[in-house]
């Protein structure tokens, strides 16, 4: 039974969170929109004139923009492919009975807790460095020429690093979902003569579909904004070979001081993220019903 009094109290308790988030969401975003219509460069103080959609035209026709969109998509899709396929395989493996399950789980989840700057620098220097890295040593010891990851395949290097960070996340979530699978259903199928592949295709995969969707959507939100891993490894280069949208906007704002252009880029990034967010919100909204 909720009284008038307790309802008013409840509203009072919710208010601080709502007001703060509202300000956080609306004020800076409105400013970004406003700046995106101005000629506004920190190196030219005093000039803030209205130029309409010119910033958008420059940003959207800049070859760097197309490179950045393509790289952003490559990072998102590449990491998703590795973490979903790898995550399913690892979850299936870890779901089997074996000795030391708890310990292996701890080993597998560990990369998720490593801060992005550490994992990026460790991979860049100690593994991918063409002179001193472990990969170079491995290649040399079998008589191959060392591969220069950051110069020759910078985007792939970023994808590998980010995938290593996210593989534990997908594995853990898919494993959790797998463990809620009804064992009797699987055994019944086995008795009916369904092979391992058929059981996976018709029982396991449908059961995992919801968890897979959740992993895809949540990772996509984070992967669209990969930043630290690029900043400390390739700086977006060589050229724009590993520049994604987040890095491009950062470079325009804090390296070229072009507030107007960076704001236009920021809005473009917001629009792209919103398309993804729309689907994620529908997914999570359904769990509220259930």
């Amino acid at each position: 039974m909720s009284t008038q009094h307790s309802r008013a109290a409840a509203r009072l308790l919710v208010a601080p969170s709502v007001v703060l988030l509202f300000l956080w969401m609306i004020v800076p975003l409105a400013m970004t929109v406003w700046f995106s219509f101005l000629r506004f460069n920190l190196l030219m103080p005093g000039t803030r004139e209205w130029i309409g959609l010119l910033n958008y035209r420059f940003f959207l026709t800049d070859p760097a923009f197309f490179a950045a969109v393509a790289n952003t998509l490559a990072i998102v899709l590449g990491v998703l492919a590795i973490t979903i396929v790898g995550g399913i395989l690892l979850a299936l493996l870890l779901d089997q009975p074996f000795f030391g399950q708890g310990a292996v789980r701890l080993l597998m989840i560990a990369p998720f807790f490593v801060m992005p700057t550490v994992s990026a620098l460790v991979w860049k220097n100690m593994f991918m460095n063409p002179v001193n890295g472990l990969f170079a040593w491995l290649q040399k010891s079998v008589g191959m020429a060392p591969h220069d990851w950051l110069a020759a395949t910078p985007l792939l290097a970023v994808i590998v690093i980010v995938a290593w960070q996210w593989l534990p996340f997908s594995t853990l979530i898919l494993l959790t979902a797998l463990q809620s699978l009804d064992e009797e259903q699987r055994e019944a199928a086995e008795l009916d003569g369904a092979g391992a592949l058929a059981r996976f295709r018709y029982i396991v995969l449908p059961h995992l579909s919801r968890a897979i969707t959740v992993v895809i959507l949540i990772q996509t939100i984070f992967l669209l904004s990969v930043f630290a891993e690029i900043l400390v490894t390739t700086n977006g280069g060589p050229g724009t070979d590993s520049t994604n949208l987040a890095y491009l906007v950062y470079a325009q704002a804090l390296l070229q001081f072009d507030v107007g252009g960076a704001s236009a880029g920021g809005i473009v990034a917001v629009v792209l993220a919103n398309i993804v967010a729309f689907f994620l919100m529908r997914m999570i909204g359904r769990t509220l019903e259930g």
């Binding site: 409840a10 919710v14 969170s17 700046f35 704002a253 804090l254 920021g266 809005i267 993220a273």
Partner: peptide, 29 residues
């Protein structure tokens, strides 16, 4: 004390998390 709008409010709060940080980097800086 869920009200009629509680679910919408929760979803809206979550949606703020979807905003890419570069969208507000410039003004916050």
């Amino acid at each position: 004390q869920p009200a009629k709008r509680t679910k919408d409010l929760l979803m809206w709060m979550l949606s703020t998390k979807m905003m890419p940080p570069v969208g507000v980097l410039v003004p916050l800086y």
